[in-house]
Design a protein around this nucleic acid. Sequence first.
DNA 1: TTTATATATCTAGAAAATTAGATATGAATG
DNA 2: CATTCATATCTAATTTTCTAGATATATAAA
Lengths: 91, 91
Amino acid sequence: MSNKTRVQILKWLKDPEGNFPPHQDIDHFDDGVCVGFIQDKTGLSQSTISTYLNAMQNANLVIPTRHGKWTYYRRNEEVIRDYLETLKKEL
Amino acid sequence: MSNKTRVQILKWLKDPEGNFPPHQDIDHFDDGVCVGFIQDKTGLSQSTISTYLNAMQNANLVIPTRHGKWTYYRRNEEVIRDYLETLKKEL
DNA sequence: TTTATATATCTAGAAAATTAGATATGAATG
DNA sequence: CATTCATATCTAATTTTCTAGATATATAAA
């Protein structure tokens, strides 16, 4: 949560249709967006983005789903909501 | 906002009466809390806390007021509120 | 069952943040 | 006006974060 790129990724994942091109195999974003698309959007290296997504997954902010060769990442809305509520309450 | 200690300071400043001893010269916390008290509470060095408070002031999160030898820091409630609202809206 | 593709992990260098000691400044006090 | 006290600033060492290249793994395709 203390990194601009990672926060930006969370924001993009709020609206996959608006922020990413459609996937090849699937015609919806129910499981989120594949790593490659996120990487293209940030301009950072593949390994960096993979590391970021892994960190976000460890923090429970995103949920990964594997479909064949691809891993799709979507927001964990519940955790994000809790985080915002706690912050508003405590800060 | 990406540092535990600095966030903790903001939280403490929400309730100066509850978190800090009374000041020598002044019997209220209208202008906030002096640097020394904040330093004691964190256990970090004087220069570190001064640096932190300066950073927070640059980010407009706190407002300093000088009274004689002491500098008191208080929360900038408006900016903090805006920050939380923006985060809730955008994240 | 070799090859290609997408993602993950390992490693290490570069950059940024953290932190404290030394020193400076500004205000009160003897 | 010399001294003391509170805070600020400067400098540098340490730690953490960022980031990419190399390599590994998993799946699909040829």
